[in-house]
Design a protein around this nucleic acid. Structure first.
Length: 251
DNA sequence: GACGATGTTGGCAC
DNA sequence: GGTGCCAACATCGT
């Protein structure tokens, strides 16, 4: 968000307390009068660093959160930050997102595993091969890798030709290499396409993503596999929809 | 209108 | 400690 670096927060208002961690008045006091010096992403968290040792304002978009510059204020607008240039709003119908001011790196961010695009294979393998959980569940575990969500877990497993039910510790090293490569490839492509606009996701400028056009299994259940033409299946793993091809993805 | 799906995480039970 | 289940919420498609 190049719009935010260097901006002065002139005013702040929080309307829905559910998305805000901590006290609203306290958060407003911490933000107003501060300048955003830099932005940093860790996993699915966005951290805004404030000047003069002013701490960090952290945002997690949850499933339906949006941070928009100059967006309209509607019934799901839960935070409004008046900047010296423009207005930053946080919208979130389902209110699964979180906003939080903290003096240092918040606990939620501290618990995250390594960045998927930065982690080296030996570390990835070290953790993976001693976990007894299903691979799909492990990929969704933010302590394993920070930032992999449901869409990209399914897409990575398909591209690596590995069944989502496979027990992590039973995965051979060559197949782990395939998974490692697939995760990085899928994330890099998704970033290039500015995300997946499955329903109405938009980026900071209000633009739709395009990666959903590259989905090979996610939300394609019943449709033919792009490799073998057999129907894509959908089941539940860790209470989340898991989409896969039973023929192409071996356990 | 009812029902079940949806991109997430944290807390609690076993 | 590792793992799994559920809740929080609004909206949309069947």
């Amino acid at each position: 968000m190049p719009h935010l670096r260097g901006r002065l927060i002139q005013n702040a208002e929080f309307r829905q307390m559910r998305v805000l961690r901590g006290d609203a008045d306290e958060t407003v006091r911490r933000l107003v009068g501060r300048r955003i010096t830099s932005l940093e992403r860790r996993g699915k968290f966005i951290m805004m660093h404030l000047d003069g040792g002013g701490g960090i304002f952290t945002v997690h978009l949850g499933m339906t959160g949006r941070l928009l510059i100059g967006g309209e204020i509607g019934k799901h607008t839960h935070a409004i930050l008046q900047l010296d240039r423009g207005v930053l709003t946080y919208d979130d119908p389902r209110q699964f997102g979180r906003l939080e001011w903290s003096a240092g790196v918040p606990r939620s961010v501290g618990k995250l595993g390594p960045e998927p695009l930065l982690v080296e294979f030996p570390e990835f393998w070290q953790t993976l091969h001693r976990r007894n959980t299903k691979l799909k569940a492990l990929l969704l575990d933010q302590k394993f890798l920070g930032g992999v969500g449901n869409i990209y877990a399914d897409e990575a497993l398909f591209r690596a030709r590995i069944h989502p039910f496979t027990t992590a510790s039973k995965l051979s090293k060559p197949r782990a290499v395939r998974l490692y490569d697939a995760i990085r490839q899928v994330l890099a492509e998704a970033i290039e396409g500015r995300g997946s606009s499955v329903s109405d996701y938009v980026d900071a400028d209000g633009r739709l993503g395009s990666f959903q056009q590259s989905h090979r299994v996610y939300q394609r259940h019943g449709e033919p596999c792009l490799v073998c033409c057999r129907p894509i299946r959908r089941t539940l793993v860790a209470q989340r929809g898991a989409h896969y091809c039973a023929h192409c993805q071996k356990r």
